[in-house]
């Protein structure tokens, strides 16, 4: 009887794993194959900016979206990384009491769980009250909201998991708290890098927080206060188009996006290996 159960469960497991892998491979396969075809047909779309009637099947490409994504994601990741390190250090026992740290961690968890569209709406209402249209700066702010809790959590986790002895020997050399904090940041650098790359990936892929806040421009971003757009927003708009050629562009954009994400996650793995050489391995 129990051997039969074992067998049935095993079959069910294999079915489940096939379902999981199959569905994910389906997504990967469709994006990569269709995107590749569409890029091969017309490689120019990556490097050109859209013409006047782009979303109606007109000329042009989506280079403005790639540029817009980069302009938004890179600064917001850098800012949130700096903020995250400072906050995570503050959560350590030298700086704040256990109660306060717990409350702050709860807030961070709530912010982490909040759907990004709410951040988008929040920034939008601020924009409206200043009578401004969406712009690059607003997009950066929305992405900081999105990334800050993610990166803070990762930094906090990797700082908290540094061995207690490291702190002890550092303090027993007569260092002040900042000096010890620097050592600890260095020791946990692999976790910090992994966290910020995960935040970076989320920011690259998130459309909901910036679809309201950047003004969905069809030109290259010109400055902090000019409107712009991002890759995932463009994919969303193109996918709903009636023109097959525009929908093909969506695949091409999705292809670029997926390649960026894959590169990010693979680099994060490699970097972690590289940075862990200074720490004691298991």
């Amino acid at each position: 009887m129990r051997y039969l159960e074992e067998k049935i469960v095993k079959i069910l497991m294999i079915c489940s794993i096939l379902a999981v892998l199959g569905s994910l491979l389906f997504i990967l396969f469709i994006t990569i194959s269709r995107g590749w075809i569409s890029i091969n047909e017309n490689p120019g779309i990556i490097f050109t900016t859209p013409g006047p009637r782009y979303l109606l099947g007109g000329e042009g490409g989506f280079f403005h979206a790639i540029a817009g994504s980069l302009y938004m994601v890179v600064p917001s990741t850098i800012i949130s990384l700096i903020l995250a390190c400072l906050i995570a250090l503050f959560l350590q026992s030298e700086y704040s009491s256990k109660r306060i740290s717990e409350i702050i961690r709860l807030f961070i968890d709530i912010l982490w769980g909040t759907p990004s569209i709410i951040y988008g709406l929040f920034v939008l209402t601020i924009l409206i009250s200043f009578h401004r249209r969406g712009c690059l700066l607003a997009g950066i702010v929305a992405l900081i909201f999105l990334e800050l809790p993610i990166i803070t959590r990762y930094v906090d986790e990797s700082i908290s998991s540094t061995p207690k002895e490291l702190k002890e020997i550092a303090y027993s050399m007569g260092l002040t708290r900042v000096e010890v904090s620097k050592i600890i940041l260095k020791y946990s650098s692999s976790g910090i890098i992994a966290g910020s790359l995960i935040g970076l990936g989320r920011a690259f892929g998130d459309a909901a927080s910036i679809i309201f806040t950047t003004g969905a421009a069809s030109t290259m971003p010109k400055g902090l206060l000019s409107s712009c757009t991002a890759l995932p927003v463009v994919i969303f708009q193109q996918a709903n188009s009636f023109y097959p050629s525009v929908r093909d562009h969506a695949y091409a954009a999705a292809f670029i996006l997926i390649i960026i994400i894959l590169i990010l996650s693979i680099t994060s793995r490699l970097l972690q290996k590289k940075f862990s050489k200074y720490t004691v391995g298991d």
């Binding site: 990967l28 892929g205 995932p232 969303f236 997926i258």
Partner: peptide, 24 residues
């Protein structure tokens, strides 16, 4: 292999899921 593959896939943006489901 399996777990790192699935970890990588956790990062696929939601628009890509939407796009593939919508058009595929």
């Amino acid at each position: 292999y399996l777990s790192s593959f699935i970890d990588v896939l956790a990062g696929i943006p939601s628009v890509v899921f939407g796009l593939c489901m919508l058009l595929g």
